[in-house]
Amino acid sequence: MPAAASISVVVVDDQQTMRSLVRTGLQQLGFKDIREAGDGEAGLRQVLTGTTHLVISDFNMPKLDGLGLLRAIRSHEPIRGTAFIMLTGRADKELVQRAVQFGVNNYLVKPFTVAQLKEKIEAVFGPLT
């Protein structure tokens, strides 16, 4: 049972408001190490330059979208094992299927609750303490 505080998270979304909401939810769940990035390129830099256990990323972003970020992470040996949860809209079934092909660990449909966020993270890491 991993402690939420021991999991390092990078939240990637081009909307500052959404990043704040995800951060708030993670903090409510006990996460401490939370970094943010406003697009896929910045997110990739965060993952490459610091210890990251989990990426929670939007799909629609400038420069490098969520799928591009996922592919980049899965193709870099040192970081390819990083857990990846994609944030999607309601009508993104095709996107989810493509993300699965690229090795996404889970996905979360917006708008979501903190309980749903917890459920998706626990499906990847196991029950959080």
Binding site: Q15, T17, T24, G25, G89, V114
Partner: peptide
């Protein structure tokens, strides 16, 4: 209320 705000953020994001 965070969960309420999430719906608003989603509407704006769409």
């Amino acid at each position: 209320e965070t969960d309420s705000v999430r719906h608003g953020v989603h509407a704006m994001e769409l």
